Amino acid sequence: MLAAFVATPAPEDPLSVLEVGDRPEPEAPEGWTTVQVKAVSLNHHDLFSLQGIGLPQERMPMILGTDAAGTDPDGNEVVVHGVVASPGWTGDETMDPKRSLFSEVHQGTMAERVVVPKRNVVPKPAELSFAEAACLPTAWLTAYRMLFVRSGLRPGSTVLVQGASGGVATALIKLGSAAGYRVWVTGRSEEKRAAALALGADQAFETGARLPQRVDGVMETVGEATWSHSIKSLKPGGVVVTCGATTGFNPGAELNRVFFTQLSVIGSTMGTRDELDDLIQMCRITGVRPQIDVELPLSEARDGFARMLEGRTAGKIVFTI
């Protein structure tokens, strides 16, 4: 079957080890099922996998991809929840110390077919296309959990989203705007800032710019490049929610400002199956839809990876099968 995979890591040149070609058909063990993939979205996690970050050589070759939408063996349209809990785990899957994502321990979703635990299959409503649904389990679910579960903020709060054009950032803008938050964003270019305003952001600023006033919360996906600005942008008692660090994991600590102004720093990772179902229903009811930058056939995956690596994104990159 056709798949996008990695057989050896390349920390300095990830695109050089991206392979798109034939892989063996998967076999579903007991308690698992096979999903015929119709669409899968690209995430920074996939670039990290090409670099060998979180994916050692001994687990390769590994099919990439953490989320997908498709059909089950009975023809039902489904969305795949990307967090794989350990056998017997109950409760919040993101708190399982032995959890993994597809493409870390188990083969990923960037293929014609993928096997997944039956509990990881969520019904897809007809109102969502396969491409839209494929954007939800990683980037959009991450944004949903950050904003509605972890932040403690309420509609009417002012939220700063660092980095206006990535998958999580565009999800935060659209979800926050739909739920009644005042959403401010930063972006590196005038084009990215204009795109964020078109998505529903109230104001857009240059990266690192002094804001008109301090904000209630900051949603952080960028890391080292924006961390100091995030901390300095918060009101006393404000909260920064971080889910990743695409520019590096060594931010300036700003600890004096954290304790003196009594800030909260909250980590957030992915989301639960129930939260994914809630997110799907929110999209169905409100009409909010993922911002898709480009749809490409899986055979042209290299072009999509190059767009992400070079920062040429304005929403999600989706591969269709």
Rank of each mutant, 00 (worst) to 15 (best):
F260H: 13
G82S: 04
T138N: 15
I280M: 12
D46E: 15
Q57E: 12
V37G: 00
P297L: 07
M95N: 15
T286C: 10
Q57W: 03
W32I: 00
L101G: 03
V183Y: 05
V114H: 09
R99S: 08
V149P: 09
V105H: 05
W184Y: 05
Y144M: 08
F102E: 01
P26Q: 08
G248N: 08
D92L: 00
M60Q: 14
H45L: 10
A164Q: 10
R289Y: 09
A139D: 13
R257I: 13
L153N: 11
A134R: 07
T90F: 10
V222K: 05
V294D: 10
V265D: 05
E224W: 08
V294M: 11
Y181E: 05
V116Y: 02
D96A: 07
L197P: 01
A169H: 03
I285Y: 06
V35N: 02
T34C: 03
A201W: 04
G108P: 04
V84D: 08
R273T: 10
E224Y: 15
V105P: 01
A194C: 12
A301M: 11
S230Y: 07
A134I: 15
D92S: 03
E127A: 14
V84L: 12
V240A: 14
L234E: 00
F102S: 12
P11G: 07
P56Y: 01
S157F: 13
I63L: 12
T8A: 09
V79G: 00
L18K: 07
T8Y: 06
V78H: 04
G252K: 08
T221E: 09
V159F: 03
T261G: 10
T269I: 12
V288D: 11
T242L: 13
D67N: 12
H44S: 13
A194G: 04
P9E: 05
E295D: 01
T158E: 14
A225V: 11
S230F: 03
M95P: 11
L296S: 09
Q203T: 15
F148H: 14
T158D: 05
S100E: 06
R284K: 15
V121F: 02
K98Q: 15
V218M: 00
V121R: 00
R257Y: 12
V218F: 00
G252D: 15
D67T: 15
K192Y: 04
G21Q: 13
Y181K: 07
S86Q: 06
V6F: 03
M270T: 07
P24E: 03
G217F: 03
C135M: 08
G252V: 13
L47M: 07
L255E: 13
L263C: 05
A10I: 01
Q203G: 14
W227S: 01
V17K: 06
R289P: 00
A10W: 01
E19W: 10
R210F: 00
G176K: 05
R214W: 06
L136W: 05
M219W: 00
E275T: 10
G21V: 08
A169E: 02
G70A: 09
G54I: 06
S268Y: 04
S86L: 05
I266N: 14
G187P: 04
E93V: 14
C135R: 04
M62N: 09
V116S: 02
G223K: 04
L175A: 08
M146G: 06
V37D: 01
A314V: 09
S157E: 11
V80G: 01
